[in-house]
Amino acid sequence: MPLIDTHVHIDFYPDPEKIAWQYENLGIYAMFVTNLPELFEKHYKSFGGFKYVRLCLGYHPQVSSEYVLNETLFQKLVLKTRYIGEVGLDYQNEHADIKNRQIKSFEFITSPLFNKGRIYSIHSKHTEDMILEILIQNKVKHAIFHWYSGKLSTLERIVDNGYYLSINPKMLKSKHGQKIIERVPLNRMLFETDGPFARYNKQLIYPSSFSEIYSEFEKSIPTFSETVFKNFKRLLIEKDLFK
């Protein structure tokens, strides 16, 4: 059964090209998220042609205080990919102008102009209700809530609207993370590492350690490997149905 990783920051590893080739050679499907359109553009020449590694066009909300979204560049680069991430909202302790900048940028990124036939990997820390409101307003079909840590009531609404949630090994180590995992329906569950930021046994996560990590999940979810791959495959098919 092929393995997947729907959220990984390959460019933050010490040797990104080596890591990308590990995913490729092991046949592990990976969504390589970026933090800025400029970084997507930088990496596209090196990583845009991989079969298993899918380069994602991103604008991380946590960089919004330093970088304004280059909408012209985003609009140009979005034609090169069907994968958008990491994008979202995270304006806790930010000034009102940064909060408004994030909301405006996220509304632009998820607008009907771009969202047909594309998959979003979404950062929603403390902003899950606003995120969901914008996704519904813009009629986004395909979104993955990455490392969800919000309210269980909102989680139910996320699922009711047909979106997915990606879980990682770090979530197994916290009570709230375990509660989230328990509440995610099997047909909406995906796997991510959020490497190199989320670690496994205090070590960086590498593709070679995936079998061990998947086995850890299968202690509580016996069909885990089959389930997350089946869901990812379905998501890819659905993406192409709504171009």
Rank of each mutant, 00 (worst) to 15 (best):
M1H: 13
L3T: 08
V8C: 15
H9A: 05
H9R: 09
D11L: 11
Y13H: 10
Y13P: 03
P16N: 13
P16A: 10
K18R: 11
W21E: 14
Q22W: 07
Y23K: 04
Y23N: 01
L26E: 12
A30T: 07
M31C: 14
F32R: 02
L39R: 13
Y44K: 11
K51W: 01
Y52N: 15
G58M: 02
Q62V: 09
Y67S: 15
L69Y: 06
L77I: 09
L79E: 14
G85H: 04
G88Q: 01
Q92L: 14
D97G: 03
I98G: 00
K99C: 07
Q102S: 11
K104A: 05
F106T: 01
F108L: 06
P112F: 09
F114P: 08
N115E: 05
N115G: 12
I119M: 05
S121K: 02
H123C: 05
D129N: 10
M130R: 13
M130I: 13
M130W: 04
E133A: 12
L135P: 00
V140H: 00
H142V: 02
F145T: 03
H146E: 05
T154W: 02
T154S: 07
L155P: 02
V159S: 05
Y163S: 08
Y164S: 08
S166L: 04
K173C: 07
S174I: 08
S174Y: 07
K175I: 13
G177T: 12
E182K: 15
R183T: 08
T193C: 04
F197G: 00
A198H: 06
Q203H: 10
Y206E: 11
S211D: 14
Y214S: 06
T223H: 11
E226L: 06
K233L: 14
R234P: 04
E238C: 01
D240E: 15
D240Q: 15
